[in-house]
Amino acid sequence: MGKYSLENYERYKTVRCRPSEIKEAIQGCGINEFQTVCVHLGEEPVLASSTLLKVIVRYDELADIERTESGLRRLAARYYRDPRVVGVALASAGGTASKRRLWEAAAEAFSPKRYYVSVFDAEQLDCALKRGFMKGLYVWVDEDVLHTCEAFAQNNAQQLYKQMPVLVSVPSGRQKLAQYAAQWHAAGVEGISVISGWRIALRRLTYPKALTSGGYAPMRFWWTNRGPSFCHEETEVRLRIEKDGRYTDIPINDSPARIRLADRVHNEIVRLPDVEPGVYRLEYGLFTKDGIPLVLANEGRNAAGFYFADNMTIDLTPRPEYRNVWDDFFADGYYPLEDPKQPV
């Protein structure tokens, strides 16, 4: 069996880094807890640290739609960059044409804040999805949770969690409703303490034990998102190496627009920077496009938002074969051919 052993299968000796995963709820992974704050035009809302701003337009305000729109825009101008606002929703009565105009106006005025639509509002769901300004689903649960389940079914909202965050507002203290928040893949929950949002962890990273300065490094990543929600942020994976207090980035082309549930792999032959030979600390992190580090469900986060992976040994020995090594070598293809009667 020697010919087909793991050792003979590999084209290069491999570092298999398995970062420790935190399985419990951790703060900072997505929206998590939030608070709905209702506001009428002309009022000043009292914002919580994480607020869904629900703008209530009164029926009489629809009589002068232009003025109401202006009011919306003035309100939006004060809060569209406020980090405490995670999103905005608009509740209004009135005729269809007026409502539609206001919905779009609110979505546009508050952009880039996400515009949330209630799972109960079939008309707005239909309009907002078709016109592309719906960026979040708002789920309000009263004492009758099955009424909310029906709304999901009636309005075909079951799979919207794949496209946008779902915020679930539950009567305070109704902990038994936690199962529904999980069922609906809540990115944030109001009213009860429950795991929401995403929990992304790097589970395994492999690369050759010896690498060349300025050369190619075949790297394979296995990420997991245990959810319950997708990560709807545009993100980018960053790698860097450190030695003697000096950091050097390793360019990598992994920028998922959205991170779904369960597993994700990224396989890339990256180009290492020109650095002095030595043993470096390899660090990884997940960042927003604005450079904000996201909290991962891995241990060992440092102040810059990176996590330690393993050591990386870099020398000056040329290894041109790494550049195309995967053309005829499937690095994850090993499987054992011996069949031990019991685990070794």
């Binding site: 298999r16 589970r203 395994r204 394979r220 296995w222 997991t224 597993d263 994700r264 792999v265 994850d332 090993y334 499987y335």
Partner: peptide, 8 residues
């Protein structure tokens, strides 16, 4: 190693 990687 085998399953999570190769399902993807």
């Amino acid at each position: 190693d085998y399953y999570p990687m190769n399902i993807e």
